[in-house]
Computed example of a mutant assay.
Amino acid sequence: MDSIIFDLDGTLWDPIDTVLIAWNHILKQSNQAKKEVTREDFTSTMGLQIQEIGTKLFPHLDERAQEELLEECCALENVYLEEHGGHLYENVESVLAVLSQRYKLYIVSNCQDGYIEAFYKYHKLEKYFLDYENPGRTGLSKGENIQLIVERNNLNKPVYVGDTDGDLKASKFAKIPFVYIEYGFGQTSEYDYSIKRFDELLNIF
């Protein structure tokens, strides 16, 4: 193994409390939204791409209206995350510091453009990662973005670390092993390795 590619939400951090403030600020001002969103609403969308989130949270709106509302929410979300960050899981930075000395580290997340940059800016973790990708920049699926990272960085034996069944499917698509984070937002019954705490990665790698 020469590299580790990480999911972000439910793997490295929990951003939901900050994101809720941003989204509900927009939704309160919108005549399109029927109600504010809750933590449970957001948790149910983790691992989905932005179009799927729109369909799930705002089914009463047509596709164009969903897209416009999501653009507003995501733009303010990036601003709030840059300013306030999210909840970084225990031992994330100390483990990344160790792993980055042994392996090449990357992030692939189903998020909008600017989201990973906001994560980097607030938590000062960019120094541990060599590259990142998301559908907000490429328009590709998570599996395709993993492949893009692998090809762009000439990786030989990467693994993917994530917390949802979608992460498992993306790993399978990219034909690389999957490490399941049990403390995250999703569930899956199939994986190559599983961990209950982030620092358990040091036992695998």
Rank of each mutant, 00 (worst) to 15 (best):
T55G: 10
E63M: 10
E63I: 07
E52W: 02
L48I: 09
D62L: 09
V37C: 13
E82S: 09
L57H: 08
G54A: 07
E52Q: 08
F58I: 05
I53D: 00
L48W: 11
L57P: 02
P59W: 04
M46H: 12
E67W: 00
L69R: 09
N78P: 04
Y80V: 04
R64A: 09
T45W: 07
Q49V: 00
E52F: 03
E52H: 04
L61F: 00
L48E: 14
L69C: 12
E77F: 02
T43A: 14
T55W: 01
L81I: 02
C73Q: 09
I53R: 00
F42C: 15
G47L: 06
Q49I: 00
E82L: 09
E68W: 09
V37L: 15
Y80C: 02
G47S: 10
T45R: 10
H60D: 11
Q49F: 07
F42N: 10
L70T: 04
T38M: 10
E72Y: 12
G54V: 00
L70N: 01
S44I: 08
Q66F: 01
E82H: 12
A65Q: 13
E40G: 10
M46F: 12
K56H: 11
L70W: 01
L48T: 09
A75P: 06
Q49H: 04
G54D: 02
T43N: 12
V79L: 08
E40N: 15
N78V: 03
L57C: 11
I50R: 03
E40T: 10
D41K: 06
L76Q: 03
E72K: 15
L76V: 04
E67M: 04
L57Y: 01
Q51F: 11
L76A: 03
L70P: 00
L57W: 05
E72G: 10
E82T: 08
A65F: 05
Q66L: 07
V79M: 13
T55E: 15
E67F: 00
E68S: 12
E40Y: 09
E71I: 11
C73A: 14
C73D: 07
V37F: 05
Q66P: 04
Q51E: 15
C74G: 14
M46A: 09
Y80S: 06
G47Y: 04
E40R: 14
H60E: 14
F58N: 02
G54F: 00
R39S: 08
T43V: 15
E68Y: 08
E68M: 11
V79A: 06
R64W: 08
F58T: 01
E72A: 07
